[in-house]
Design a protein around this nucleic acid. Structure first.
Lengths: 142, 142
DNA sequence: CGGTATCCCATGCGATACTG
DNA sequence: CAGTATCGCATGGGATACCG
């Protein structure tokens, strides 16, 4: 049976709200906030970096994912790819002005998470995972 | 994925960096920057909201995803869940102070993406696409 | 009304292998 | 060095059905 095929024909982009499911900003947002996207863009705030440096900087990323994200962001105009015609070739990536704008906003998020991660985890572990009964510590006086 | 690192007491525990793959902040970051996480937290900046209102506000989200994210963030201490013992019950969610901090950072990102999405898309389309087609999804011939 | 449980598929991502 | 191609699995996420 045919799977529901959402028609790709978008008449016009009248939707400008990210909360609208047809808004093109959704696509951008998903890429930018993807698992590696945030880290890649944030890492490049320090300046231009070559492939391997970037790979080394971001722990756990595979070449495939790095390459894939890098290409996407380059196509989005958030990164600029520079190739030095040497042998072996040196390829470096750097944020475009537009890329910088978004990376700066990502940085704030990253810093917060970094600074508060332990607190959040501690809170989470102090909370009972799944219980229908309201916790005794939660005041029902409302 | 046990690559090794069986030592529970790492020598450099102080090196808690989001770029480190073992950093707990990675988990938090992934949840917060998940497809719906960003939108949910940002939406709640406007104030407490009930389940259906939130669902209506965020276009395209399923009840399952909304519920799942809401629970996770509540367990993280980013949201507070309030139940009014009426019939039928009214459940509302609101940002905790900690939730507000992160939501504010998310908001800046959202606003930027919203404001620049069209430019990014235009740039992307003006870029010579690589031979690999980036189609939405193609049902496998089966 | 506000969920939770189940099924199932689409996608993200990692591992490996190969190329210029 | 800097990728790309392929395979395969784990997980995110949608649709549906049911419960307090």
């Amino acid at each position: 049976m045919a799977v529901g095929v959402p028609d790709k024909a978008r008449a016009e982009v009248g939707r400008r709200d990210v909360f609208d499911k047809d808004c093109p900003a959704r696509t951008i947002l998903d890429k930018v906030t993807s698992r590696w996207g945030v880290l890649i863009l944030a890492a490049l705030r320090d300046g231009p970096m070559r492939f391997h440096v970037l790979r080394d900087r971001i722990g756990g990323i595979s070449e495939k994912m790095l390459s894939q994200n890098l290409r996407t962001f380059t196509e989005y105009g958030l990164l600029e790819r520079t190739v030095e015609p040497t042998i072996p070739p040196r390829v470096s990536y750097e944020l475009t002005p537009r890329g910088h704008e978004i990376a700066d906003r990502l940085q704030g998020l990253l810093e917060w998470v970094q600074a508060n991660a332990e607190e959040v985890v501690r809170f989470q572990q102090g909370t009972r995972p799944l219980d229908h009964d309201d916790g005794p510590r939660l005041p029902t006086t409302k």
